[in-house]
Design a protein around this nucleic acid. Structure first.
Length: 271
DNA sequence: CTTTACGCCTGACGGC
DNA sequence: TGCCGTCAGGCGTAAA
């Protein structure tokens, strides 16, 4: 999926199209997503969008007077702004039809995405409760990562991909940030020094911010709200570069499955 | 509590 | 050309 930069890019694209407009109706073409689309989403009908924001990889559409829609792109989902009269394509699950005739349309071949209704406050939603800090906020620090990792044997790559520790770091950016910080992905989280966590936090922030500037990473499915791909794939240092030379020391990049996910690293530069 | 494994799905790709 | 196995960016859940 879409990791944090892709969700943020989508947010930046859809917010201007939604904010201040009212929802005429939501057309559900195929309710089969991760959870079946519940009928409560129709509470959105006739309501005006007060604000659009992101928490972790969730998109939150908040309405005047409270309540809102919670959207998740899953692994292959994308939202696009289009004209309501455009012909729907395969895997177009729902339309958010707006008063001006435009429409926000969700496409998701693998159906791991979600569309849910929530009542305020949003942070009380089951799915948002217990989430860790936003990586681009001041709440995310090396001191905090270090403290929370003490005594834990889990591989550091799984540790930073755990949403209770920090949100929004998926498989691609976890590999990238660990390379930038010189940390081996399978090193136990509890056996990493404080200063190295400071470096890791800087690397995570840096890679996420650069990816947002490039419109995210498109490897397979991801498209932004204008149906265009992201261009960060060409900036990747290790991800999907197995066998190719490390940009720092020329040693071939290795791939290894850690916690059921492919991980890419330089065994010479990362310890 | 932490850690691990498993599905939920479709589609793209490589090997035969 | 077709069939089959493998793999893919997330994440909640069950079980150890």
């Amino acid at each position: 999926m879409p990791e944090l930069p892709e969700v943020e890019t989508t947010l930046l694209g859809i917010a201007p199209a939604l904010t201040g407009r009212s929802v005429e109706e939501i057309v559900v073409r195929n309710p089969a997503l991760r959870w079946p689309i519940p009928t409560e989403i129709h509470h959105a009908r006739g309501r005006t969008v007060a604000n659009c924001r992101r928490r972790a990889k969730y998109l939150l559409i908040e309405f005047d007077g409270g309540g809102g829609l919670l959207m998740h792109l899953g692994m292959s989902g994308s939202l696009r702004v289009c004209d309501g009269s455009d012909e729907p394509r395969k895997h177009d699950h729902y339309d958010l039809r707006l008063e001006d005739g435009s429409c926000l349309r969700f496409n998701d071949p693998r159906r791991f995405g979600a569309l849910l209704w929530w009542d305020p406050p949003a942070e009380d939603h089951e799915l948002l409760r217990g989430l860790g800090p936003e990586p681009l906020s001041e709440d995310f620090s090396g001191a905090d990562l270090w403290r929370r990792s003490r005594g834990r044997k889990v591989a550091v790559k799984n540790f930073i991909m755990n949403g209770r520790i920090v949100v929004g770091v998926g498989n691609i950016y976890a590999s990238e940030a660990l390379f930038m910080a010189g940390i081996h992905p399978s090193r136990p989280a509890g056996r990493i020094a404080r200063v190295r966590y400071d470096a890791l936090v800087l690397a995570i922030r840096d890679v996420l911010m650069r990816a947002i500037r490039h419109g995210g990473t498109t490897l397979r499915d991801y498209l932004n709200s204008d149906s265009r791909p992201g261009y960060f794939a060409r900036e990747l240092l290790v991800y999907e570069r197995e066998g190719q030379p490390c940009f720092r020391c020329r040693t071939p990049i290795r791939r290894r499955v850690i916690g059921q996910r492919s991980s890419y690293y330089c065994h010479r530069c990362q310890r």
